[in-house]
Amino acid sequence: MNDWKDLKKALINFRNERDWEQFHNPKDLALALSIEVAELNELFLWKKAEDANKEKIKEELADVFAYAILLAEKYDLDINEIVLAKIKKNAEKYPVDKAKGTATKYTDL
């Protein structure tokens, strides 16, 4: 698998074989995504980042990506297109000459 379309196809096939689409409405996919992000965050709680279990990070991150891809599919969104559009928008909000090397929010640059 080399791109988002292949991943989406594999996820949809996995979901459909189990008749889970009935549970995958946008609201529940967004909630599941949020829960998986919380589980990913939990792996870092009270420890240094380098002490987090990499195998568990891979598993939780895979869940995050899976739910995000399925949510994009529900709205017929092209992942490459929306991410590139967001990068372009952020480039305008965070010009290199003002934002380089700082974590300051764009409204305070």
Rank of each mutant, 00 (worst) to 15 (best):
L70G: 03
L77C: 10
A38R: 02
A72R: 08
E55V: 08
K54F: 00
W46G: 09
S34M: 00
R18T: 02
A72Q: 13
L84E: 09
D76T: 01
E59G: 11
V64F: 04
I35S: 01
A99R: 05
L61Y: 15
F23L: 08
A68V: 03
K5A: 11
A38H: 01
N13P: 00
Y67A: 09
L43F: 10
T102E: 03
L29A: 00
I79D: 06
Y94E: 12
E17M: 07
L84I: 05
N25T: 11
Y67V: 03
A85Q: 15
V37T: 15
E60Y: 04
F14W: 05
A10L: 13
F65W: 13
F65Y: 15
K8P: 04
G101N: 08
L29F: 02
R18S: 14
G101Q: 01
N16P: 02
K56P: 11
R18L: 14
D51S: 08
L31H: 09
E39F: 04
K58R: 13
L71M: 05
E92T: 07
A85T: 12
K98S: 01
D19N: 10
E73I: 03
K98P: 02
L11Q: 11
W4T: 04
I79G: 09
K98I: 03
A91W: 10
N25C: 01
D108N: 10
F65A: 05
T107P: 08
E42N: 02
Q22I: 12
D78E: 14
D6E: 15
A10I: 00
E81V: 09
F44Y: 08
L84H: 06
K100N: 07
A68F: 10
D19W: 01
V83T: 13
A10Y: 00
E39Y: 01
K54S: 11
L84V: 11
T102H: 04
D28L: 06
F44V: 00
K74R: 15
F14Y: 03
N13R: 12
K89A: 14
K100S: 07
Y94M: 10
D108T: 09
F44A: 00
V64Y: 11
V96C: 08
T104V: 12
K74L: 02
D6C: 02
K9C: 14
D97Y: 02
K56D: 04
A10T: 07
K86W: 07
K93I: 05
N25M: 01
L71G: 10
A30E: 07
Y94L: 00
L45C: 05
E17R: 09
K8W: 09
K8G: 03
A62V: 05
L70N: 00
A85F: 13
K88E: 12
A72G: 15
K48S: 02
E55W: 06
V96D: 14
I57A: 15
E81T: 07
E36M: 05
